[in-house]
């Protein structure tokens, strides 16, 4: 199985637009949207979901004041500064609670119970070129890494059952827990960057991460004509580091035009320079398999 992950470090460089283009070029493919925090790919692929499942992100402590003696032992034990005295009453901050359950275990009055946070969902569906797994993390909830694992595992299972060779993973921004969960065990990573100092800085950090996880990485410079000098710098640096740059996509307002029509750029403007470059990139990504 060939699992291709699209990453960037910096947000807004065009991960989802590129993933959407790949998802509508390859056939049949399985797509996993692992940006569970701010999932957007479904807006373009418009999958018809055939199931929706509940995901428990964690637990929050709740105090039963009928039995609480306000001894404050939980305050001493909590390392997240989630519990404090307020007018001689023990108050728990839901925002700070990490769900470790320690307070509920040590409470001498057994006044603390743990309530599951179960508002997050994940979905599987069919779209025009194959299958799609995506998710929605409920606002403010934790453990997006675990939810990413669920999405990826199901995408693999689906691909296996349907005999699909390629999985396209739209990754989250950053380099933290959801990114680590998305990248672990992927066959190759396409890193989308942009020619800005910030884009370049973030590119170096994400490449350090993919190299730690031994995932072969390829760079795509999006909006490459917005600053030719920095595009040059990035290309030069990648050559030095022996990281292949497999495409430079010019800035094109039609990316937004396509988005407004719920289409990928290759569906909306197949003749555009950007689309031609993306098709070239997709072909080279597939050639890399052989």
């Amino acid at each position: 199985m060939n699992e291709i992950i699209i990453l960037s470090g910096k947000g807004g460089t065009g991960k989802t637009s590129l993933s959407a283009a790949f998802a509508t070029l390859g056939k049949p493919v399985t797509v996993a949207d692992c940006d569970v925090d701010a999932a957007n790919l479904y807006l373009i692929l418009q999958p018809e979901n055939y199931f929706e499942k509940r995901f428990i992100t964690g637990y929050k402590a709740v105090i039963d004041y009928d039995t609480c003696s306000a001894c404050g032992l939980c305050i001493d034990y909590c390392r997240f500064e989630a519990i404090a005295y307020q007018n001689k009453k023990v108050i728990l901050s839901e925002i700070s609670c990490d769900g470790c359950k320690l307070c509920s275990r040590i409470c001498p009055c057994q006044s603390i119970r743990m309530v599951a946070s179960d508002k997050s969902r994940w979905y599987a569906g069919i779209y025009r070129n194959g299958f799609m797994v995506h998710a929605r993390l409920a606002p403010g909830e934790e453990n997006s890494g675990k939810l990413v694992n669920v999405v990826r595992e199901h995408a693999r299972k689906m691909a296996h059952e349907k005999g699909i060779e390629t999985i396209i993973i739209d990754g989250p921004p950053g380099i933290g827990c959801p990114v680590i969960s998305s990248v672990t065990g992927a066959s190759k990573a396409i890193i989308v960057t942009e020619p800005s100092n910030s884009g370049f800085h973030d590119l170096k950090r994400i490449l350090e991460l993919t190299s730690n996880f031994k995932v072969r990485s390829y760079v795509v410079i999006n909006k490459s004509d917005l600053n030719e000098d920095i595009t040059e710098q990035i290309t030069g640096w990648c050559a030095e580091m022996k990281i292949p740059v497999i495409g430079k996509i010019p800035f094109d307002k039609q990316f937004v035009g396509a988005m407004l029509q719920c289409k990928s750029i290759v569906e909306w403007a197949p003749g555009s320079e950007a689309s031609k470059e993306i098709m070239k990139i997709w072909n080279s990504v597939n050639d890399l398999n052989q």
Binding site: D37, A38, P139, G140, P173, G174
Partner: peptide, 10 residues
């Protein structure tokens, strides 16, 4: 702020 709506954002 960091992007997203999960723990780093909160």
């Amino acid at each position: 702020s960091p992007p997203g709506i999960s723990c780093p954002f909160i």
